[in-house]
Amino acid sequence: MAGHVVVITSGKGGVGKTTTTANLAMALAQMGRRVVAIDADIGLRNLDVVLGLENRIVYDLVNVAEGACKLRQALIKDKRCDTLHLLPAAQTRDKTAITPDQMKTITAELKEEFDYVLVDSPAGIEQGFKNAIAGADAALIVTTPEVSAVRDADRIIGFLESSELHDPRLIINRVRPEMVRRGDMLSIDDVLEILSIELIGVIPDDEGIIVSTNRGEPVVLDPHSTSGQAYREIARRLEGESVPIVPPTPVADGWLGRLRRLIGLQSR
């Protein structure tokens, strides 16, 4: 049976598309699914380093599109989880090096062999984004609870709709529960009210992500990580499991916070 091609996109840069792609790919692969992650950000390749596979690249997406190598030859198999593969972006070319039609052909070929083809989209709404969504069956939109990211997500939702890619699902990344509690960060409900699309997961802001990226080990490999847990739950939702979405809660804030709340200096 043919697999699913899922594009991970956002509009705004730096909201966590690549980290999300890497972690969902790893989480799905650890569930035994055959997964290939495609880095569609040609010229600004990064999924390889986030996955820790940067030293093993021989061929890339552009080589495949141009027929310089076989698709198989360009796939890098992950040593930690042998059902996970990476199709890296070219670093020395730009986004015009491939076309939406070529992406369609490549993703169509991959989904014959894999359960999931995850496409890490570049930021922006230009050719690179159009390439990334070309062969997709579904889209995940990553945003953070910030005005700029939410605005760009809204624009992307509009673009996806006009590209006939319906019902995208939303991942709200880098949520800081303490800031939400004191009214200094848009809450999950605020973001959903504004964007009115379906939510598939909420990732708490987590320093562990930076550490895991430093090491090239997706945070889902750490069983104790809260963000890793959130990514694993999204992977299960992609699989069709019904896993309730629980917004991150503030960690205990010590005696000072409790005292402040007690004497009514802090709301809630």
């Binding site: 910030e146 004191r182 200096l265």
Partner: peptide
């Protein structure tokens, strides 16, 4: 800040929501 009475200031997320609402009307 709270002791000095600045807590009555509107939470910044309310401003964020309001500004987003307006900007998205135009954007859309």
């Amino acid at each position: 800040q709270r002791l000095l009475g600045r807590e009555s200031e509107r939470p910044s997320k309310e401003q964020a929501k309001e500004r987003l609402r307006l900007v998205l009307v135009h954007d859309r």
